[in-house]
């Protein structure tokens, strides 16, 4: 039954990757923006939560709640002041700007918090586990996975049942026509990035509670997140979850063969999916 255990652990790990990816999927789906600073923004949010815990003495959950509006504001500002200016048919300018942001953020964090690896203390949750008969799972991974599903349900609710969501979808399909219908694409984009940063804060909370982090780990998280988004297909949030799970399962199976193959196995799963389905498994939007 070891393979079943590996499978379950992999699926749960996929939840974490889906959380990393959900915000990216939202932004990528709506404005085709490749945010290369996404991983570093997750790390930034993790430090923000950590500061709430260590300096204000808050519990991690409350600290994350406090960080959310701050991150929303940051995302809104980032989109309004910087990213909206470089969005266009050419993908190069936004790519370069976010690459610059990524390097600036990494080194800013390094200067502010040093290269020491940190962790958000999660109290009794850290080692807790649940016996489900066939397999035993950690409470923290289970909670991560449940949060990933909750985030995706909430985002889908927003997407398909609110006026803002309608504007998101309309802008995603055709920004020019949406503009003719009285939607201001740039304001929509700013809202989308703001919401993505709220999701980033949730991802950061679990990243920080589950493992150590330091200013340099952002790009690796970005790659996992991007792989999940691309495997899932443009604009499909459930697809993003599926993508996260595929990478998570590939990684745990890879690690069970040889611990050094964990990350490699995830990347190879991504390459195989891309070879078979270059547009991902469940593409919603046409690009």
């Amino acid at each position: 039954m070891i393979w079943l255990d590996t499978l379950v652990q992999g699926i749960l790990l996929g939840g974490l990757y889906a959380l990393f990816a959900a915000g990216l999927s939202l932004v990528f789906g709506i404005m085709r923006l490749v945010n290369l600073a996404h991983g570093d923004l997750i790390v930034f949010a993790a430090y923000l939560v950590l500061m709430g815990v260590t300096m204000l003495g808050l519990s991690p959950w409350i600290a994350a709640l406090v960080a959310m509006p701050l991150m929303f504001g940051l995302g809104w500002l980032l989109q309004t002041v910087v990213l909206n200016r470089v969005l266009g048919k050419d993908i190069l300018p936004p790519l370069l700007v976010t690459f610059g942001l990524s390097v600036a953020l990494q080194n800013g964090l390094l200067e502010a918090f040093s290269a020491d690896s940190r962790r958000i203390p999660a109290g009794s949750l850290e080692g807790a586990s649940l016996n489900l008969g066939l397999v035993t799972v950690g409470v923290m991974p289970l909670l991560t996975f449940a949060s990933a599903i909750a985030v995706i349900v909430a985002l889908n609710g927003l997407f398909y049942h609110t006026a803002l969501g309608r504007a998101f979808r309309a802008t995603s399909d055709d920004a020019v026509t949406a503009g003719l219908m009285g939607i201001e694409p740039k304001r929509i984009f700013a809202m989308a990035t703001g919401i993505a940063m709220v999701v980033v804060t949730i991802a950061a909370l679990y990243l920080g509670m589950r493992s150590n982090f330091d200013p340099s780990i952002g790009p690796a998280r970005l790659i996992y997140a991007f792989e999940a988004v691309i495997i899932g297909g443009l604009g499909s949030l459930w697809g993003t979850l599926a993508g996260g799970v595929i990478i998570g399962v590939a990684q745990t199976f890879g690690a069970s063969v040889n611990p050094e193959w964990q990350i490699l196995a995830g990347h190879i799963a991504f390459l195989i999916v891309m070879l078979l389905k270059p547009r991902g498994l469940f593409p919603r939007a046409v690009d």
């Binding site: 300018p93 690459f99 610059g100 390097v103 600036a104 200067e111």
Partner: peptide
């Protein structure tokens, strides 16, 4: 690391104002 931070910010500025 201030140097790298500056470099990143300069790249952003150039991209915004002098693409």
């Amino acid at each position: 690391s201030w140097y790298l931070m500056t470099l990143g910010l300069i790249a952003i500025t150039v991209m915004l104002f002098a693409p």
